[in-house]
Computed example of a mutant assay.
Amino acid sequence: STTCNQGLDKLEVTLPKGIWLGFDFSDAHPDLPALYLKGGSIIPVGLPLQHVGEANPSDDLTLLVALDESGKAEGFLFEDDGDGYEFTKGNYLLTHYVAELQSSIVTVSVRKAEGSWKRPKRRLHIQLLLGGGAMLDTWGVDGEVLHVNLPSEEEVSKLVSTSEKQFKERLEKAIQIPDVEDEVSGPKGMELSRTPIELKSSEWLLKVVPWIGGRIISMRHFPSGKLIIH
């Protein structure tokens, strides 16, 4: 949004043409941007980390899946040791994930993999976006074929309606991000107790909330004076 000082709970979001499915990580907040995944996309998501040194290849991997008009989606995940240049010698793993809907069953699988890096033994969590923040979940093993059974259109509609109601309630109960250092009780991601950090360059000013995964609150472009995100 380019509207200054207007929270997510009051904004009317305008999106490009196509399917865009809203979602969040249970941290929806009026002062944070809305998240949407374009239909036809698969996004890999890992556990929250402070730096790559904390990562463990066996950590659970989540795939956020948003089907397009044809009931298909795809995405890529690149992995390596996280240090050194062995990836230039082929020691990496590039995985091409695909999803396809057939007869009310969404099948998620690996279409192709490149590189000599061995696939870690880990659990794979599929989250199929339905819209309005609603999701269908299934668990399996990375590298194997997983299936998600779609309920009837009526049941999907109920799931979306319930999710939208819960989303609205979270926004209404959220405490605004303070502009000054102030101790506020509550879970991380909903109530915060630290001042947002400002990152400046010659042309940009970014305001970031460290406690919510470094989420950007706003981006101001100095030459034009425009507020790009708020």
Rank of each mutant, 00 (worst) to 15 (best):
E79A: 10
K200S: 15
E198M: 11
R111E: 13
D31Q: 01
K118W: 02
A66E: 12
G140Q: 07
T162Y: 07
R170Y: 06
S109D: 12
P16R: 06
F76T: 11
I197V: 15
R119E: 08
E172V: 05
I175D: 04
T62H: 09
L35P: 01
S58H: 08
E153G: 03
W117E: 12
I42K: 00
M219N: 09
T2P: 02
H51T: 14
K226D: 14
A134D: 06
G140E: 05
I43Q: 12
L37P: 02
G115A: 06
T3Q: 15
T14E: 14
P178R: 02
E12G: 06
S26G: 05
K158Y: 03
S218C: 07
G40F: 03
D59L: 01
P33N: 04
H29W: 11
L159V: 02
L64A: 01
N149Y: 11
A99E: 06
E74Q: 13
Q166I: 07
E100K: 14
E198A: 10
V160T: 08
V156M: 10
I19E: 05
V145Q: 15
G213F: 10
E172M: 08
T62F: 04
L159Y: 11
L129P: 01
L49G: 03
D142T: 09
E198V: 10
V45A: 15
T107Y: 01
P187G: 10
S103I: 08
E12R: 13
I217M: 14
G90W: 03
V108L: 05
A174V: 02
W204D: 13
L32M: 13
I177W: 02
D59W: 07
K226N: 12
P30H: 08
S157W: 04
I217R: 13
L150G: 02
S185I: 13
A73L: 06
T195K: 14
V106H: 00
W20R: 05
D81W: 07
P44W: 06
R119M: 14
F76Q: 10
G40E: 10
